[in-house]
Design a binder for these strands. Structure first.
Lengths: 194, 194
DNA sequence: CTGTTACGAATGAACGTTCATTCATTAGTA
DNA sequence: TACTAATGAATGAACGTTCATTCGTAACAG
């Protein structure tokens, strides 16, 4: 067993537990137990629980960005770009319910709020999935294809419903199949297009 | 000082503290302190913290339903009904940021999940704001005015964006004035209409 | 090859803190 | 006086974190 195995075990255990029960329902002792390690061992890899939580988030973010940027239809019409990003995002979250649940926990917590604040204030300058959507919106507005609304409002109109629907899917309240995803994508496009 | 005064004080204090800091950031001791009472006194009025939390939720729910049902344009066209409910809901949440924040905390917690599950499984039969929207959607679908999508999806399309935008407003990321609310309402209508 | 030493990852009992809840006591009222 | 409401110190469970110790392994010496 190499070093990174233990780290991976801890990440996996923490992700599952937190996604399932939230930050406060996932004590370090239980994370350790699930990772078949000792409580203290976690602190060999992560300074404290906060660091672990943020590390987990970045783990997911990286994979999400990778998924979105692979095969991105650069230069194609705005509508096509939007459908592409929306679909990729949706399908990624549906096939990684653990990641989705974790992200939900994260964004509905002080961790996520400050992350969002930093992002909106431009405190980081990486090209990621979020940027992709923002660029689509800016381009769409200047081409008079999209409604002239604040970017943050367009973002809420475009992906707010998707997140709610995916949550309902993971909770078993609705079944999201391909045709339905398509219809929802179109509905969101209707919301933001002129 | 009458009985209900103390109860009101406790409710107010708990609401403020929980809305601001979440359930885990609002210890009973601090709620008591803020309500100018002793920790033990809370237990004269509420069996335990869970009961207090659910009581708080129903407190808000009642006022919200009251606000929506007052002046409801019964019998008017679907679109008008939708604009009415949407506007009322939006304005209520904007003028009661404490209630909004509390509801957010509630719905993004196990309390809210089970509440939602009960509702969707029809475990309660009251006529409230939620029902109002559902009735609008059912009527709109049968009149071929709205897209033929599952009710739960229509609900996400209609109010998902609003909740996100209101959150961004309370966090100071965007300013929601009347014209902008109007535009967002129309965008959400575009999303659900055929 | 064998025996010894050094290293550091892993351990888990223990610590200090925080919290919800209890209950013996007190204050207030009729 | 008799009864209820209010109190807040006390309780014990749960948690994140620490640290003295263990133990497998790698490096080295003979």
């Amino acid at each position: 067993m190499t070093n990174s195995d233990k780290r991976t075990d801890i990440i996996q255990a923490a992700m599952e537990l937190i996604a399932e029960r939230g930050f406060h329902g996932a004590p370090m002792s239980e994370i350790a137990q699930k990772a078949r390690t000792a409580a203290g061992t976690i602190y060999c890899y992560f300074e404290n629980k906060d660091v672990l939580i943020n590390e987990l988030f970045h783990e997911i973010e990286d994979k999400l960005i990778e998924a979105i940027l692979a095969g991105y239809p650069e230069g194609k019409p705005i509508k096509e770009q939007f459908f592409y990003v929306f679909g990729k995002l949706c399908r990624y979250l549906l096939t990684h319910p653990l990641h989705f649940r974790y992200m939900e926990q994260y964004f509905n917590s002080p961790y996520g709020i400050s992350h969002r604040r930093d992002k909106l204030l431009g405190k980081n300058v990486n090209h990621d999935g979020h940027d992709a959507l923002i660029r689509i919106f800016e381009e769409g507005i200047s081409q008079k294809i999209l409604k002239d609304l604040p970017l943050i409002v367009l973002a809420s109109l475009a992906i707010g419903p998707m997140l709610y629907v995916i949550r309902d899917h993971t909770l078993g309240f609705v079944v999201l199949d391909e045709p339905l995803i398509r219809q929802i994508t179109e509905a969101c496009w209707d919301a933001i297009k002129r």
